[in-house]
Simulated scan of single mutants.
Amino acid sequence: MSKPISLPKTLPSALWRGTLCRCPRCGDGKLFRKWLKPVDRCSVCDLDITGQRADDLPAYIGIFVSGHLLAPVIITLVVSYSLSPMALLAIIIPLALVMLIALLQPSKGAVIALQWWNGMHGFKRERANGENP
Protein backbone atom coordinates (compact mmCIF):
# COMPACT_ATOMS: atom_id res chain seq x y z
CA MET A 1 0.00 0.00 0.00
CA SER A 2 1.47 3.37 -0.97
CA LYS A 3 1.57 6.21 1.49
CA PRO A 4 -0.76 9.19 0.87
CA ILE A 5 0.59 12.24 -0.94
CA SER A 6 1.51 15.08 1.39
CA LEU A 7 0.60 18.23 -0.55
CA PRO A 8 2.38 21.42 0.55
CA LYS A 9 0.23 23.73 2.65
CA THR A 10 1.78 27.01 1.48
CA LEU A 11 3.47 28.48 -1.56
CA PRO A 12 6.83 28.80 0.26
CA SER A 13 6.78 25.09 1.14
CA ALA A 14 6.06 24.20 -2.51
CA LEU A 15 8.86 26.52 -3.65
CA TRP A 16 11.22 24.96 -1.12
CA ARG A 17 10.46 21.49 -2.49
CA GLY A 18 11.23 22.75 -6.00
CA THR A 19 14.41 24.46 -4.82
CA LEU A 20 15.55 21.14 -3.35
CA CYS A 21 14.91 19.62 -6.81
CA ARG A 22 12.07 17.48 -5.50
CA CYS A 23 8.56 17.10 -6.86
CA PRO A 24 6.52 20.12 -5.71
CA ARG A 25 3.43 17.95 -5.21
CA CYS A 26 4.74 15.10 -3.04
CA GLY A 27 8.21 16.31 -2.07
CA ASP A 28 9.69 12.84 -2.52
CA GLY A 29 10.24 12.25 -6.24
CA LYS A 30 13.22 13.62 -8.13
CA LEU A 31 12.39 16.64 -10.30
CA PHE A 32 15.33 16.34 -12.73
CA ARG A 33 16.68 13.39 -14.71
CA LYS A 34 19.67 15.40 -15.95
CA TRP A 35 21.12 18.68 -14.74
CA LEU A 36 18.40 20.96 -16.21
CA LYS A 37 16.14 18.34 -17.85
CA PRO A 38 13.02 17.65 -15.76
CA VAL A 39 11.56 14.19 -15.55
CA ASP A 40 8.39 13.56 -17.53
CA ARG A 41 6.50 12.18 -14.52
CA CYS A 42 7.19 12.05 -10.81
CA SER A 43 8.20 8.50 -9.87
CA VAL A 44 6.31 8.76 -6.56
CA CYS A 45 3.02 10.62 -7.18
CA ASP A 46 2.87 10.35 -11.01
CA LEU A 47 2.60 14.15 -11.50
CA ASP A 48 2.92 14.98 -15.21
CA ILE A 49 5.72 17.57 -15.45
CA THR A 50 5.96 17.70 -19.25
CA GLY A 51 3.88 20.89 -19.45
CA GLN A 52 6.28 23.06 -17.43
CA ARG A 53 7.64 26.14 -19.16
CA ALA A 54 10.49 27.59 -17.09
CA ASP A 55 12.18 29.12 -20.18
CA ASP A 56 14.64 31.89 -19.20
CA LEU A 57 13.29 32.80 -15.76
CA PRO A 58 15.73 30.53 -13.83
CA ALA A 59 18.69 32.24 -15.53
CA TYR A 60 17.29 35.68 -14.66
CA ILE A 61 16.80 34.60 -11.06
CA GLY A 62 20.37 33.26 -10.93
CA ILE A 63 21.80 36.47 -12.37
CA PHE A 64 19.76 38.60 -9.96
CA VAL A 65 20.76 36.60 -6.87
CA SER A 66 24.41 36.24 -7.92
CA GLY A 67 24.69 39.95 -8.60
CA HIS A 68 23.24 40.88 -5.24
CA LEU A 69 25.44 38.42 -3.37
CA LEU A 70 28.57 39.46 -5.26
CA ALA A 71 28.05 43.22 -4.85
CA PRO A 72 29.34 43.36 -1.24
CA VAL A 73 32.23 41.04 -2.15
CA ILE A 74 33.25 43.30 -5.03
CA ILE A 75 32.95 46.42 -2.87
CA THR A 76 35.03 44.82 -0.11
CA LEU A 77 37.73 43.70 -2.56
CA VAL A 78 37.97 47.16 -4.12
CA VAL A 79 37.90 49.15 -0.88
CA SER A 80 39.94 46.93 1.44
CA TYR A 81 42.61 45.52 -0.87
CA SER A 82 44.80 47.15 -3.45
CA LEU A 83 44.32 44.61 -6.21
CA SER A 84 44.96 45.24 -9.86
CA PRO A 85 41.97 45.18 -12.23
CA MET A 86 43.19 41.84 -13.64
CA ALA A 87 43.41 40.32 -10.14
CA LEU A 88 39.87 41.52 -9.40
CA LEU A 89 38.60 39.96 -12.64
CA ALA A 90 40.48 36.73 -11.86
CA ILE A 91 38.57 36.51 -8.57
CA ILE A 92 35.14 37.86 -9.55
CA ILE A 93 34.50 36.16 -12.90
CA PRO A 94 35.09 32.55 -11.74
CA LEU A 95 33.13 33.23 -8.55
CA ALA A 96 30.22 34.67 -10.54
CA LEU A 97 30.21 31.72 -12.96
CA VAL A 98 30.24 29.14 -10.16
CA MET A 99 27.44 30.92 -8.31
CA LEU A 100 25.29 31.25 -11.42
CA ILE A 101 25.75 27.61 -12.43
CA ALA A 102 25.01 26.47 -8.87
CA LEU A 103 21.78 28.50 -8.78
CA LEU A 104 20.33 27.38 -12.12
CA GLN A 105 18.90 23.99 -11.13
CA PRO A 106 17.36 25.13 -7.80
CA SER A 107 15.91 28.19 -9.57
CA LYS A 108 14.36 26.03 -12.28
CA GLY A 109 12.92 23.71 -9.64
CA ALA A 110 11.35 26.69 -7.85
CA VAL A 111 9.88 28.01 -11.11
CA ILE A 112 8.36 24.60 -11.86
CA ALA A 113 6.95 24.50 -8.32
CA LEU A 114 5.46 27.99 -8.80
CA GLN A 115 3.79 26.86 -12.01
CA TRP A 116 2.40 23.76 -10.30
CA TRP A 117 1.12 25.77 -7.31
CA ASN A 118 -0.74 28.19 -9.57
CA GLY A 119 -2.04 25.52 -11.96
CA MET A 120 -0.19 26.95 -14.94
CA HIS A 121 0.83 25.21 -18.21
CA GLY A 122 -1.33 22.11 -17.81
CA PHE A 123 -0.74 21.55 -14.10
CA LYS A 124 -3.85 20.91 -12.00
CA ARG A 125 -4.12 23.35 -9.09
CA GLU A 126 -4.19 21.31 -5.88
CA ARG A 127 -4.34 22.37 -2.25
CA ALA A 128 -3.73 20.43 0.95
CA ASN A 129 -6.97 21.66 2.55
CA GLY A 130 -9.05 20.25 -0.30
CA GLU A 131 -9.86 23.68 -1.73
CA ASN A 132 -9.30 23.12 -5.44
CA PRO A 133 -10.83 25.75 -7.72
Results as ranks from 00 to 15, higher is better:
residue 10 T to V: 02
residue 122 G to S: 10
residue 80 S to D: 14
residue 15 L to Y: 00
residue 44 V to F: 11
residue 13 S to T: 15
residue 96 A to P: 03
residue 36 L to V: 01
residue 72 P to L: 01
residue 6 S to G: 06
residue 81 Y to H: 03
residue 12 P to S: 10
residue 67 G to F: 11
residue 4 P to V: 09
residue 23 C to Y: 05
residue 110 A to E: 04
residue 46 D to W: 10
residue 87 A to M: 14
residue 14 A to C: 11
residue 37 K to A: 07
residue 37 K to P: 12
residue 2 S to L: 12
residue 66 S to K: 08
residue 1 M to Q: 05
residue 82 S to R: 14
residue 37 K to L: 11
residue 128 A to L: 08
residue 53 R to T: 13
residue 76 T to G: 00
residue 116 W to Q: 10
residue 62 G to T: 02
residue 79 V to F: 14
residue 48 D to K: 10
residue 53 R to H: 14
residue 100 L to A: 12
residue 33 R to N: 07
residue 113 A to S: 06
residue 56 D to N: 06
residue 122 G to R: 09
residue 2 S to I: 08
residue 73 V to D: 03
residue 5 I to A: 11
residue 61 I to L: 03
residue 101 I to C: 03
residue 40 D to L: 11
residue 106 P to V: 06
residue 90 A to Q: 05
residue 16 W to G: 01
residue 4 P to F: 13
residue 124 K to S: 14
residue 60 Y to H: 05
residue 48 D to I: 13
residue 40 D to H: 09
residue 42 C to N: 00
residue 124 K to Q: 15
residue 71 A to W: 12
residue 56 D to V: 03
residue 58 P to V: 04
residue 17 R to H: 14
residue 102 A to P: 04
residue 58 P to M: 07
residue 34 K to N: 01
residue 67 G to Q: 02
residue 97 L to I: 11
residue 31 L to P: 00
residue 84 S to D: 03
residue 125 R to N: 07
residue 22 R to C: 09
residue 17 R to E: 00
residue 58 P to R: 09
residue 61 I to K: 05
residue 123 F to K: 06
residue 11 L to T: 10
residue 120 M to I: 15
residue 115 Q to V: 12
residue 115 Q to P: 02
residue 61 I to C: 01
residue 128 A to Y: 13
